[in-house]
């Protein structure tokens, strides 16, 4: 099970931001070679990011790189520069089935050529109507371990405006959530673009969570802690899950038993296991306050 909560975009062309990329608590960093880098800086950003990844030890976060899309003149150069042992995941913009399949094969070839033993993953960005319709096929491609909703480009393609309520992205959010959960991969929500509006970010993240998305992108470091807090299991959830697991141990493998007068069965036990697994992964304190 992949478990991300927050993925922070960092422009690959900004040395000061690269230097501090790892300190904000994001589970993943998406070093961006695409939209946040101007055309005349594409080369220098690629060189800067390559050197940065060689010099800095980033073993506590997932290293993702958003390359330029497959049909841009920068795609091949981006991949040539970025396929190495330091990169965990390629984030592919304007993805569709054909492009993701191409990237999958391209990565395999490069991994073999460069003697990279690990598998570099792919997070396709779903930001066209065509891609929304292909979601169920895209998630089946092996390297894909998460889908990222690109709300801005998608609503442009749909010729509708973004709204605070977000009804215009209700369908792709839901579709991504279902497809990803069915495959056990991450459903990643589109970023909230008003970086000064913390309350808006809280509401938007809670809404995404309520629809089944388990992760969200951040476009400003100050958004990371808010996203992490909302998408982490709460203290109450962790405590309850801990008590469920203690009760499981004491139940001597009975399939069904009761806790606080409520029936505990397999789905609740599985949910408790997931909560504790997430809590552990996210460095949260695990344990029951008391045993009733």
């Amino acid at each position: 099970m992949i478990m991300r909560r927050s993925l922070l975009f960092i422009p690959a062309s900004k040395p000061a931001m690269l230097q501090n990329a790892e300190i904000f608590g994001a589970d993943s960093i998406i070093f961006d070679l695409e939209d946040s880098v101007s055309v005349d800086e594409k080369d220098s950003a690629r060189i800067l990011l390559s050197q940065f990844l060689i010099s800095f030890n980033l073993d506590k976060v997932e290293v993702c790189v958003r390359v330029n899309d497959l049909h841009s003149p920068f795609f091949v150069d981006d991949l040539n520069a970025m396929i190495n042992k330091k990169v965990d995941t390629i984030v592919l913009p304007k993805a569709n089935v054909r492009d993701v399949e191409f990237l999958d094969k391209f990565l395999l070839k490069m991994e073999l050529e460069r003697n990279i033993l690990k598998t570099i993953n792919i997070i396709p960005i779903i930001e066209t109507c065509e891609a929304v319709n292909q979601i169920n096929e895209i998630v089946k491609i092996n390297r894909v371990n998460g889908l990222l909703l690109g709300g801005e480009d998608l609503t442009n393609d749909l010729e509708v405006s973004r709204t605070i309520d977000g009804w215009e992205i209700f369908y792709p959010r839901t579709k991504i959530a279902y497809a990803c959960k069915a495959r056990g991969i991450d459903a990643i929500d589109t970023p909230y673009i008003n970086t000064l509006d913390e309350e808006g970010l809280i509401l938007d993240t809670k809404k995404a969570k309520s629809l089944g998305l388990n992760a969200k992108c951040a476009i400003h470091p100050n958004q990371v802690s808010v996203i992490n807090e909302i998408l982490s299991p709460s203290i109450e959830e962790i405590e309850y899950a801990s008590r469920v697991m203690i009760a499981v141990e004491k139940s001597n493998d009975k399939g069904v038993f009761s806790l606080d007068g409520k029936m505990i069965d397999k789905p609740i036990i599985n949910k408790a296991k997931k909560v504790l697994e997430k809590a552990k992964k996210f460095g949260l304190k695990v344990g029951a306050k008391d045993e009733k």
Binding site: N20, I23, F24, G25, H220, P221, N222, S225
Partner: peptide
């Protein structure tokens, strides 16, 4: 401060 690094330290 609005500086993200400063806010991390503060938090």
């Amino acid at each position: 401060t609005r500086d993200p690094v400063g806010l991390i330290i503060a938090r």
